[in-house]
Design a protein around this nucleic acid. Structure first.
Lengths: 368, 368
DNA sequence: CGGCTGCGCTAAATCGTGTTAGCTTCCCAG
DNA sequence: CTGGGAAGCTAACACGATTTAGCGCAGCCG
């Protein structure tokens, strides 16, 4: 029940020493300041016995360190990305005895500022400012009053705040390489962005960099992308509509969808058109959203390293706190590699032996 | 940059009054304690001018209130439920100037205890202990050292901690009513739980209560459920396998899937069997997972009120803090209603006019 | 002229911890 | 016998707010 908590003074009195001594012993500075082994033992044992726990508020007030990190995101709900990034951050933080303050701005700059202020009021040791899809963000005023990191985002204007991002260019290369390695040279279409590097959703870094990476590999392999289609929203419906549009004019051999939800929509349209994945059309996409493993056949997708991103952000934050004591250094961009998740949605068209996902069933269309 | 924050003393000195006065004025107790209007004005204006913000740590140390709530969940990553509950809680908390500490236990009782302790160390004003799927939980030791609420969970043993849960029984009735109202009397199958009330995933409250609700309505309408199938995991693959199993022996007219992911798997199996939703088979499910609106036709589903659950938990927590000052009252279970999300996956088989989802396309199977 | 009352404000204690400066006691060398 | 140093601990202040008790002053009354 609401029993009063045990304080340092309680432990001191019970042990028969001063609070100073208890404080020193429990901070591990006993030896350094010549507290006898006997007293140290007694202090520790009574502290344990009384169930003493230090009051973090008090420590924070005195030392300025609260063992706490603020995590401000734009939206947590709409995407699993958020959950996993937070989880990664929480685990990394928890490992060092830190806790996370979580706040969601909904993308509203006023709320962003308010959250950053509220966190500074609580004297967090640093703030992670996260975007739920990789994009440029306006750094809120006051963010750099303390150590800070942008997660999954780059600053829109110049800023001294470091960033942690997925390595999207390399991901682009990886996706293209999968198709090229599987022998695909013709009938490749892009769903979600392109053909130009600016034909991407607003502020989207992911789309642009993926396009860059893909172009590198496709150009080198002599692959010409037949058509590319920008979609503003990257939802299944957009993938569905776009794929139907493609099918109206072409007979595609491979689709690169800029995320898994688009790919899901593409699956639906292909099924309606009685085209089989991967026998008729190979599909590659990005993100490794849960849906990627739910569809049949499973998608081959380049995974967003949600968890690692969150953990890396915490790591960078700690490094920044260290560095802060010395000089202010230039902003840094940290890239976290994205890994290939192999599904059965790509068919090797060069190999003689048929190598599609073995029992993979397909969707087909029954006309009204 | 790291400029020293403005303190109460700074404001006091700049105004030419004592810190007491400033504190009283800013706490709104100026009138009550007879501070002249003139001084009040001056205090407020210099505070504003200097950009004074109170140090929450200090206030917390002095008053015992930190304007902070702890949110401990078992898993945040695997389900969107989590994100939305947290979001609901965050918004409700933010409205009253509170922030949320977030922690994830991964279901490990040791971690749970550690998190609860860490939050009490930071002197949170209350703790929300949340489960990501509705179930019974062991209340961690120390949770009731302060105000606390179980979210989406009931205590396994007796506990004085109140609970906030979705109204699953009513949801069960709603799902059954949808089919009954649409004229379905025969060929109804359950995917995910049943036939007995104990044929449910371990500790699952949702499954059991949904079964209860459905049984009430089906019994009253004289509907006999043809078959019911417990699935341990409620993932798409389980829905797929179960539906194939059903199709081996029956020709179903309606499926009730105990969540949307199961329903998604069912869609896949039905498509393979060249059965159309809803023309051949109606499908109803639970949760309103994003997938429900991505499939074609959209699922009719009973929505989990994630957001409201989170908000309600905060509300109950505040009420508990109030009540705590008086007597300890009996534990309470709060139920939050679940709403019907209409899709196009149910066909009215009684009405003369055909009333299926108009342009809804269907999945069919192309045999190898 | 002294005492009482009400007004407007402040001194000082307090919350729980960290930290600096210094106090006592003992030992030993000079 | 005395001075110096080390060992082992503690007193006291600081962190930034809240809160209780009460101070000085003016005015009024008897």
């Amino acid at each position: 029940m609401g029993r009063r908590r045990v304080t340092l003074a309680d432990v001191a009195k019970a042990t028969g020493v001063s609070t100073t001594t208890v404080s020193l012993v429990l901070a591990g500075r006993g030896a350094e300041l010549r507290i006898s082994d006997d007293v140290q033992r007694r202090v520790r044992s009574t502290a344990q016995e009384l169930g003493y726990r230090r009051n973090t508020l008090s420590v924070g007030l005195r030392t300025g360190h609260t063992q706490t990190i603020g995590f401000v995101s734009d939206t947590v709900a709409s995407s699993l990305l958020a959950g996993n990034m937070i989880k990664g951050a929480m685990e990394a933080a928890h490992q060092r005895g830190f806790m996370l303050f979580c706040g969601e701005s909904g993308g509203d700059p006023d709320v962003e500022r308010a959250l950053v202020e509220a966190m500074h009021d609580r004297r967090v040791d640093g703030i992670i400012f996260a975007a739920m899809y990789t994009r440029t963000v306006a750094v809120p005023e006051g963010l750099d009053d303390g150590p800070a990191v942008l997660l999954n985002a780059l600053p829109a204007a110049y800023s001294s705040v470091p960033s942690v991002l997925p390595d999207e260019v390399e991901a682009g290369r990886a996706a293209a390489r999968i198709l090229v390695d599987a022998g695909h040279r013709e009938g490749v279409h892009l769903v979600g962005a392109g053909p130009g590097l600016d034909d991407v959703p607003p502020n989207s870094i992911a789309a642009r960099e993926r396009l860059i990476g893909m172009r590198q590999v496709f150009d080198a392999a002599g692959v010409e992308v037949v058509s590319a289609h920008q979609c503003p929203k990257w939802m299944p419906e957009d993938g569905y509509d776009t794929t139907r549009e493609i099918l109206r004019h072409h007979r595609p051999r491979a689709l690169v969808c800029l995320n898994d939800r688009l790919a899901f929509g593409a699956y639906q349209a292909l099924a309606e058109a009685a085209l089989s994945v991967p026998d008729d059309v190979s599909v590659v996409s990005y993100d490794d959203h849960p849906i990627a493993s739910w569809v049949r056949p499973r998608l081959t997708t380049i995974a967003l390293p949600h968890h690692e991103l969150g953990a890396k952000a915490v790591e960078v934050l700690f490094a920044a706190s260290e560095r802060r004591r010395r000089a202010k250094s230039a902003p840094v961009v940290h890239r976290v590699p994205m890994s290939v998740q192999l599904g059965a949605s790509v068919r090797n068209v060069s190999a003689p032996s048929r190598q599609s996902g073995d029992r993979a069933s397909v969707h087909a269309h029954k006309t009204k």
